[in-house]
Design a binder for these strands. Structure first.
Length: 593
DNA sequence: GCCGTTTTCGGCCCGACTGTTTTCAGTCG
């Protein structure tokens, strides 16, 4: 397996954890964490940078030492420092750091005093009451560790955006009604629309003596209240999701909302900027000396720092502050920019509703067009359509288009990209053999995109968040291929997929490849998932003009037909006779005449 | 370990809460 950026980042994270437990210089630890974060965000493959002799020192936070370690990991798959650290401490102690209340010092104390090496060791020691023998751990701490390890050993560590969105909206509504509460908002990674959320952060603007904290902890059913003070509380819901609430005075709300939205890296950069200007930024405002000069709104904070407002999805320290300074921030795509959806299913394959119901639901959500893309026969599981059934569906779509106003249905199909690159037409997707080697997977996709009918690569990596890793392929090559062929990439808006992810979206944008934000709806309510696709697209800096389905129908048709004009390479013609027959019976470029 | 209109050393974001101390360390965000 070739080493990818995330592998090197993982090595650096583990080094940081182990160094921290050892009690190393905290700024040295931070250097490794910063480097890991930078690698995770980097849109360029680090191995290819090394291969072409690029200067790694030029990367932010990378000096001679870390540049050397990156090369070492990429070349050998190992890092001598990490190997050394692992002999000094059991590697699993890094797991202990994920338990609330346990940081580096306690992890070290637990290891030294009780020989605790793993989460299971910790859980057992807590059950047996042995933790209290460790200096600095009393009965409460022991109990909270017992509860945390119990949850940790069975509950998922991160939650899908859809679940946390629902919880956040419900709590927001609940707390907004409490007397003395002026405003409640969600913050943290949910607001930044990260694809998964570890815990839910909320911020409230309150008058003095508001009962907001009491109402908030009551949401935990009295079971798991981690902390509760006048301005801050943390609870654990039945789902295991931790929710943190901070309450601040009205005049500090913007600064607090900004602060608890993060990301941490963005906050640090803002604080550094404040310091350079002789100011101080904290969650209560921007201060010159003791005088507050901003903080009631987020915009006021940015303004005081000489910056325009930066959208939450951009706050990842991926160049947004430089872009703000040069007035080149993207005008991010919004849900209302979407005019249509280019990937949806009906009862004909594995969807749950009729053509009519899906059309009506799409129209009710303000969409002007909807591509019906049921599965092709290869996906027997999904009762895929053969040529005959597809022809019947096309007739029904024509009939419906003639009869119904307010929405136009486009005729498509979601075809399987076979292992050797054959496909039918329009929306191509991988549904099997996720485990091919990087070279074979890349070749498979490139050949599929050579097919004259190919329009959109659906859920490109085929990942399922927390369930199945994405296919390994050379994404930059696939994106360049899409540009050459005039094809498009999908950002599948299903919260379990969000595929392409944010970094990949930005790569597509940089290469000038349009992205289709599609619901992949299998029932009418799933059109509402488009919001999560929008969130991910905004994290990827996409503007309306970067998105395929913000186009009016006429413009969309020209773009789609553009994929049909290019002659396929000779070796692909006649690849599969049955497939070509299907292709002739559907015209994706002029779907409804 | 990185970085530099304070440039090769001395900084590196800052405040709240808890548990366990008996005045504060550790952790967290």
């Amino acid at each position: 397996m070739p080493i990818v950026n995330a592998d090197v980042a993982g090595v650096f994270e583990e080094i940081a954890d182990l160094l921290e437990v050892q009690g190393a210089n905290s700024f040295r630890v931070r250097a490794y964490r910063n480097a890991a974060h930078m690698l995770g965000e980097l849109g360029t493959d680090i191995k290819s940078m090394i291969d072409r002799g690029a200067d790694l020192d030029a990367l932010p936070g990378i000096g001679p030492d870390l540049a050397g370690k990156i090369c070492e990991v990429v070349r050998t798959g190992h890092c001598a420092l990490l190997d050394e650290l692992r002999t000094q401490l059991p590697p699993a102690v890094t797991e202990l750091l994920k338990i609330p209340g346990i940081g580096a010092k306690r992890a070290r104390a637990l290891h030294q005093a009780l020989g605790i090496r793993t989460l299971q060791d910790l859980h057992r020691a807590a059950e047996e009451g042995r933790l209290r023998t460790v200096q600095g751990i009393g009965p409460k701490m022991q109990q909270s560790i017992l509860e945390a390890t119990t949850i940790r050993l069975k509950a998922p560590r991160r939650y899908k955006l859809s679940l946390v969105t629902q919880v956040g909206e419900a709590l927001r509504l609940e707390l907004s009604g409490v007397p003395g509460v002026l405003e409640v908002q969600v913050a943290g990674s949910l607001r930044r629309q990260r694809e998964t959320v570890g815990d839910l952060d909320m911020v409230a603007a309150v008058e003095r003596d508001s009962a907001v904290m009491d109402r908030f902890v009551s949401a935990a059913d009295g079971r798991h209240v981690l902390i509760k003070g006048p301005t801050r509380a943390s609870i654990v819901l039945a789902s295991g999701l931790q929710v943190d609430l901070r309450a601040v005075p009205r005049e500090s709300f913007g600064a607090a909302w900004l602060y608890f939205t993060g990301s941490k890296a963005h906050n640090i950069a803002l604080r550094q900027r404040a310091r350079e200007a002789g100011l101080k930024l904290n969650e209560y405002g921007v201060f010159r000396g003791d005088r507050r000069i901003a903080g009631d709104t987020e915009a006021s904070v940015y303004h005081a720092l000489g910056l325009p407002f930066i959208e939450p999805e951009l706050r990842e320290q991926r160049g947004e502050i430089d872009a703000a300074l040069s007035h080149s921030l993207p005008a991010l795509v919004q849900r209302r920019d979407l005019r249509g959806d280019l990937h949806a299913h009906t009862r004909e394959s594995d969807g749950r509703e009729s053509l009519e119901a899906m059309a009506a639901a799409a129209r009710a959500r303000g969409l002007e067009y909807l591509a019906i893309t049921d599965h092709s026969p290869r996906l027997a599981l999904a009762h895929g359509l053969d040529a005959g059934r597809l022809a019947q569906q096309i007739d029904r779509i024509d009939e419906l288009n003639a009869r119904v106003d307010g929405i136009v249905l486009l005729k498509g199909i979601e075809v399987d990209i076979l292992e050797d690159g054959r496909l039918d037409l329009v929306v191509g997707a991988i549904h099997h053999r996720f485990d091919l080697s990087r070279d074979k997977q890349t070749d498979r996709l490139l050949r599929a995109m050579d097919h004259p009918c190919f329009s959109i690569l659906a859920h490109p990596t085929a990942r399922l968040i927390d369930e199945r890793p994405g296919c390994d392929f050379d994404l930059p090559r696939v994106i360049r291929k899409a540009r050459e062929r005039g094809c498009f990439l999908e950002l599948n808006a299903h919260p379990a997929r969000l595929d392409l992810n944010d970094v990949a979206c930005r790569m597509a944008k940089d290469e000038g490849v349009l992205v289709s934000i599609a619901s992949d709806a299998h029932s009418s309510v799933e059109f509402d998932n488009l919001r999560f696709g929008i969130g991910q697209a905004r994290r990827g800096w996409l503007e309306s003009s970067d998105v395929l389905n913000t186009r009016r129908l006429g413009a969309l048709r020209s773009l789609l037909s553009g994929t049909m004009d290019k002659p396929p390479p000779a070796h692909r013609v006649g690849a599969a006779v049955n497939v070509r027959k299907t292709a002739e019976s559907v015209d994706p470029g002029t779907p409804s005449r």
